[in-house]
Simulated scan of single mutants.
Amino acid sequence: MQRFANPLLRHVIHRGYFDAASQTQCLQYLRALRTLQLKGFNTVFLGETDIPESLITGDKTAEEDSLSWPIWTLVHAGSSQGWVPWRYRLLLRDKLFIDWQEAIFQELCDSLTLSYGKCVIVTRDKRQSTHVGTKEVKETGTQPPVPPVIYMSSIKCCPEIARANGHELLAVPSSYSYLYPVDVAWSSLKWFIINNRQGFALRSIGRTYSYRCILFSDLIMKGIEKMTPRKWKVAINRVKRWENYYLDTFS
């Protein structure tokens, strides 16, 4: 089997990721990111992950039954220094009004201003297509790398709100998810939940009934703490190596 000379490329990567349109989109994003970093903007990655109740309880349900189970969405952000000093949000998915969705992003921007000064907030747009090699993208290769509004599952991120607080907002190209280290944090959290949920469960047995109570908030908090600043630094350094490679290759 042929080996890549660059150790960063020892991954299975879809061939379509390297078409001209995809490269253009990636280069736009990276140039915008580096320009802001050189201007003194701190990089903060904002992300979210869904936590089905079945993951917390460990109950294996049929797919049709799981549709009626509550799904929680965890929203948090991290930088090279670790999780940002902001009270993460654990939200019941699809139960937020639009005003609340914007208020959460506004609160994050306020917190970042106090803690870090001006930041470039990097996130993913849930409405991006999974493949960017389309005619529309090829013909508009000079378009800004961020849409007017970025929709996550539970909150709405507005570039105007970010700029009003001294920040900038960017969206990672959908085909280059490994330039987005937040997924490493979510993987760490979910493995912690799977391996430790029994330690956060209380069981009560009465004369005619029994039930189990899981300390959900404590379980999530401890899982978040397991993604330490050292682990964040490792994940972000890996992303930087990819960024350098693409800037050298696509430019």
Rank of each mutant, 00 (worst) to 15 (best):
Q2F: 10
Y17A: 10
Y17I: 12
A20L: 13
Q25R: 14
Q25T: 07
L30P: 00
A32L: 02
A32R: 06
R34P: 00
K39V: 03
G40F: 05
F41D: 06
F45C: 03
G47A: 09
D50H: 07
I51K: 01
I51C: 02
I56K: 01
T57W: 03
K60F: 06
T61P: 00
D65V: 13
S68T: 11
W69F: 11
P70Y: 10
A77I: 01
S79A: 08
W83P: 00
Y88I: 04
L90V: 09
R93Q: 15
I98S: 09
D99F: 04
D99M: 08
Q101G: 05
Q101P: 01
Q101S: 09
E102Q: 12
Y116A: 04
G117T: 06
I121N: 00
I121G: 00
V122F: 01
D125F: 02
K126W: 05
K126E: 14
R127M: 10
R127N: 14
T134I: 09
E139G: 03
T140H: 15
T142D: 15
T142Q: 14
P144V: 09
P147G: 10
I150R: 03
Y151L: 11
K156R: 15
P159H: 10
E160D: 12
I161N: 01
R163T: 11
H167G: 01
H167P: 01
E168Y: 06
A171M: 03
A171K: 03
S174R: 13
S177G: 12
P181L: 14
P181G: 12
A185H: 00
S188A: 14
S188R: 13
L189T: 01
L189R: 02
K190S: 04
W191M: 13
W191L: 14
W191R: 15
I194D: 08
R203A: 13
R212Q: 15
F216I: 05
L219Y: 02
I224F: 03
V234T: 11
A235N: 05
A235K: 01
R238T: 08
R238I: 04
V239N: 01
K240M: 12
K240N: 14
W242A: 07
N244H: 09
L247N: 05
D248M: 11
F250I: 15
F250S: 06
S251K: 06
